[in-house]
């Protein structure tokens, strides 16, 4: 397999992330607004609970929020809908004319864009939190958390292509894509760590892929040295990535047979 086209797609994606400088600068500002709210909220919650809730103290939970939010914020919110639109609207059919794998090329370009956005959001969020709350609780855990953030973005991206590929068979499934986002919010642990869930619900969340996309980087950034979480991320990517390519390959074949 030639690697150059995908590397070039990745680089182009990374460039588009900063092509609109004002928009590029505003998105991290948006994260700062969210962090201001969460600092107030968690401050009150943790104080009311005596300094520690579900294994998180104040500083830990704020760093959890920074990592979990930054990991999710990198991918544009409507991406999974756009995948569906592109399949239904014929954009994919045109892309099939190129001598490269459609889904690989798209994932590469998407990752270039998303990793730059997530990274810059994290830098700004981390700077804000360091000033207002203090440095991350554990330096060694940060070393795990940074690759975990990148893996979270990758897992989210390939998973969106795996789920979004359903549009090859189901027409106009817009509402379903919307639910995907919300699953990351709750069972993915973006809004609230999974430890806050009632027992059975927490167990359920562990069986789904979404927690690798927000909870894992958050948990590690909060100071918990738990390398096995990264193994779980890798495992889900190892499942979802081939699944996405498989779905697109058979979807493209179907498109060639029955038309777009």
């Amino acid at each position: 397999m030639r690697i150059t086209p995908y590397r070039s797609a990745f680089v182009t994606g990374a460039r588009t992330a900063s092509a609109e400088p004002i928009e590029f600068a505003l998105r991290p500002l948006f994260l700062v607004v969210i962090l201001m709210v969460y600092e107030s909220l968690w401050g009150v919650v943790i104080e009311g609970a005596g300094g520690i809730v579900a294994s998180y103290d104040y500083r830990a939970i704020i760093w959890y929020v920074v990592a979990a939010q930054a990991a999710v914020i990198g991918i544009i919110p409507r991406q999974i809908e756009e995948i569906g639109d592109d399949i239904g609207g014929g954009t994919i059919a045109v892309e099939m004319l190129r001598p490269v794998s459609v889904v690989l090329f798209r994932i590469a370009a998407g990752l270039g864009d998303a990793l730059v956005r997530s990274g810059s959001a994290f830098v700004i969020g981390a700077a804000f939190v360091t000033v207002t709350v203090g440095p991350p609780p554990s330096a060694t855990a940060v070393l795990l958390a940074l690759p975990a953030m990148a893996l979270a973005v990758i897992a989210n991206m390939v998973s969106q292509y795996a789920f979004g590929g359903a549009a090859f068979w189901i027409e106009d499934a817009k509402g379903a894509w919307f639910l995907y986002q919300k699953l990351i919010f709750i069972v993915g642990g973006m809004l609230i760590p999974l430890e806050f869930f009632p027992g059975a619900f927490e167990t359920l969340a562990h069986y789904l892929p979404f927690w690798t996309m927000a909870y894992v980087p958050g948990r590690l950034m909060a100071g918990h040295f738990e390398p096995w979480l990264i193994v779980i991320q890798l495992a889900w990517i190892a499942v979802l990535f081939p699944l996405a390519t498989l779905i697109f390959r058979s979807g493209e074949r179907r498109m060639q047979v029955v038309g777009g």
Partner: peptide, 29 residues
């Protein structure tokens, strides 16, 4: 109708967040 339903689902997700939180820590101020 799709948009209307989606918006309501969105609102419900946020309420779910609060229910989970209160479930763990009781009331907040």
């Amino acid at each position: 109708w799709l948009q209307v339903t989606m918006m309501m689902a969105n609102d419900l997700v946020w309420i779910a967040f609060w229910v989970l939180l209160f479930n763990k820590v009781g009331d907040v101020r």
